[in-house]
Design a protein around this nucleic acid. Sequence first.
DNA 1: CCAAAAGTGTTCTATGTACACCCATGC
DNA 2: GCATGGGTGTACATAGAACACTTTTGG
Lengths: 223, 223
Amino acid sequence: MSDSAVSPPHLEICVVVFTLQESRLKVLLIPSKDPIFADMWMLPAAPVLDCALEKAAARQIEQLTGVGEVYLEQLYTYGDPGRHPTCRLISIVYFALIPADSLLPAAEQKSGSHWFALEELPRLAMDHADILAYALRRLRYKLEYTAVGFELLPEFFTLSELQHTYELILGEKLDKRNFRRRILEAGIIEATPHRRSGEGRPALLYRYRPDAVAEVKARRLFP
Amino acid sequence: MSDSAVSPPHLEICVVVFTLQESRLKVLLIPSKDPIFADMWMLPAAPVLDCALEKAAARQIEQLTGVGEVYLEQLYTYGDPGRHPTCRLISIVYFALIPADSLLPAAEQKSGSHWFALEELPRLAMDHADILAYALRRLRYKLEYTAVGFELLPEFFTLSELQHTYELILGEKLDKRNFRRRILEAGIIEATPHRRSGEGRPALLYRYRPDAVAEVKARRLFP
DNA sequence: CCAAAAGTGTTCTATGTACACCCATGC
DNA sequence: GCATGGGTGTACATAGAACACTTTTGG
């Protein structure tokens, strides 16, 4: 079992995938198969076979959700004796944002994975609760200095939808006028000629400027 | 050689160690032993044997410099086909700050390592120049919202010495009065009753508040 | 015409920036 | 007594926070 320092530790790519459903921030989990963690859930992970780490994370997310292009960023590499009771394990963790409207429901059934709202998490195996907490911290932090919020929305969205996204993730109410001013001054989204009719006055639809994605990537602090 | 996806990739812990010598920010490098990278230098690295990643990085730094307790933080995990021409390699990179006065010169001789000023770097193997550039970016960034500067100084230091440290790392001149106000308001360092006599008026010696180390760790965005 | 959500500027506060002179010591 | 670095406060500019009413549609 854990005959330390004889064979190298196991190495896996682990992903924290967020989406927005029913006005809640949700994370993708899979049921644990290991009897040690019976009735617990885990962040999805897969053994590292080659060294294309980001591609491996993307491939894994595609298998689980059916979505190929996602916002993806390396989070941290966790390795510590005692993370896992019986084996030495190193997890390279990525985190990702997916707009709910691009998810394939079939993929979820097939993989046995499930989306959990952050307020209704099941028991998580190992240190996965810590990892998730850190991913959320980083997401909140990134939201403040870049405009990744739109990565969780469909291609066209209203400013109110975007603001609600921010409020959900940050866990606080924001001022409408200040929010609009800042987000527009950031120049990452732009108005389209279309409108959406709903209950009240129809809202202008916005989309992120396609060339702004590169800009967001350039602005990020993590390579 | 590179029969991909048959055996798992090689995994190493790599360290970017900064210190301050002769009014210059320096980084610790070792000469490459691999003939592919003849006459190039590298960031120190060692194969991963167990999964105590941070301890492994600390151990490596102690072997190279003789210093046991250092400021240490995980930087990023690099893995990409094409990083190394002949083998698949994943590097978990840490970065560290060491006060120059605690270095053991003997350790440097024994390991063949050498301190290079950032303005006079030799050719670096693989993507190590990128890694180093990112480590510097992160150091500069951290300096702005925490007060890690004192990690490069001896136990007792003057405010001018601390300011010069900041100026060196950030690469710009800072206003003396504003610097002092901010650094003291941050509450991370405290005056001692001692003074240092030098050329002009003797300067008060400061040290960081021992209980502030935990605070700095708590404030950091990376776990 | 009423309910429901969209849209829009200004004032105040706090934070950061620029800036110049006196002080204590060694030689 | 003079050269050298140490030490101190204030005015101004900029960024962020608080705040309330009018507009457009559907029912």
